[in-house]
Design a protein around this nucleic acid. Structure first.
Lengths: 221, 221
DNA sequence: GAGCCGCTCGACACCGTGTCGAGTACCGTG
DNA sequence: CACGGTACTCGACACGGTGTCGAGCGGCTC
């Protein structure tokens, strides 16, 4: 919401070299986008809506962003970063209790997406049309997969988890499962899970897949 | 490809009451769509392209279909039916060997989607914008989930599978995992699995989730 | 041969996108 | 204080896609 960005020069995404002034406008566009996305789906929002909402004309909008998609991408950048950090933090915390650790990671991702449903829905619709969004999405999923695969390998190394397919392969399947199940659940699609059962169910699949049991760390050698 | 449709009156989907003649045109449009989808993504195909490909003018196209989306929906109807039947058949076959039975179901769905990659990609892009496609997709996933849930419950009842979360909840998670993993793998996105490993990995997750082991039927009482 | 019906398309209205070029306001510098 | 530049603004335009309307045409039936 806040995040003043004192004078960050390197625009990570391609959008535009930022200048001290006019910066308010850029933020106004972003804010308008976030606001409108809470009201209706992305395809029903035009560049004109965004411009008007930010108090500027349509051509002026193009001075700040090359397209409607770029606005969503900018918004998404922030959320993706938030999800990544929140997940890594959860994984770092709770080092002892294995089960709690996995649960924390699940919970972190779920939390981030739940907090930004509208944006996530918009991202999903862009996934089909925007190569940039696809790249961004692939990057975050890749990060999750790497992290997960490393964790599985560690558990196998210490004898807590049985062998099986490459850890990375399992990680790919599990993480995509999360992505989709969380998405359909929060987007109100069917078949979905009850929001309250989400984490329990996903955790069960993760634990059984990795350890073969719901209660790792209690029985094995 | 063939499927003459002798004179089927009840257009399942909303498209239009069908008349004996002009039927060739309808098929030509469908064929053109399938063809063009093999060349470029759906958003890059206009109604005009479809019409020209079928040898008619754009307004005439609207005599046969209410929109571009409806064409894809019609195509999708057939494929969805194919997937459903192929999966049910696989589940019916191989009654004894549990593992083979699950594998067959996985294989059936994979096969159908692999055979229609382009269409599946188009469906994915419509999922974001077309309520009808969403309903159709929800329906097929629901069918898979029901079938899966029943199978899990049967396994639990005969003591082959351990208790745990509601069978339906596990079924939801597992089937969405399949959907997504198959999709990213065949759409060439990342992170994905190698096409050859797909089934093995998914099967492992399914078996471990349902039974807690890769080799059901060998150990338990 | 009159009339209907399935079918066809030219022409049109509409909407959203993206661009171009003519401004304006404000800056620092001479 | 002019002067030139630069950040920014927007009216007007061109384009491409969608969907509709109404006139026309060919074959069938009575």
């Amino acid at each position: 919401m806040a995040a003043p960005l004192p004078a960050a020069p390197g625009g990570s995404r391609g959008r535009r070299a930022r200048r001290p002034s006019g910066d308010d406008r850029e933020r106004a566009i972003l804010a308008t986008a976030e606001d409108l996305l809470g009201q209706r789906p992305l395809p029903d929002i035009s560049v004109d809506d965004l411009a008007r909402g930010a108090g500027i004309s349509r051509p002026t909008f193009y001075f700040y962003f090359p397209s409607k998609d770029a606005v969503v991408l900018a918004l998404l950048d922030r959320v993706v970063e938030e999800a990544r950090e929140s997940r890594s933090a959860a994984l770092r915390r709770a080092g002892d209790d294995v089960r709690a650790s996995w649960r924390g990671a699940l919970e972190a991702v779920r939390g981030t997406f739940a907090a930004h449903r509208a944006l996530t829905a918009a991202a999903a619709s862009l996934l089909a049309t925007s190569a940039e969004v696809r790249v961004l999405w692939a990057a975050i999923m890749d990060g999750f997969v790497e992290e997960t695969a490393a964790a599985i390998e560690a558990e196998r190394a210490r004898g807590a988890a049985p062998a099986g397919p490459p850890a990375r392969d399992l990680a790919v399947a599990l993480n995509w499962m999360n992505e989709r199940v969380i998405h359909v659940t929060y987007a109100g699609q069917t078949p979905a899970l009850a929001e309250d059962d989400l984490i329990d169910v996903l955790l069960t699949v993760w634990l059984r897949t990795v350890y073969g049991t719901d209660t790792p760390g209690t029985a094995p050698a």
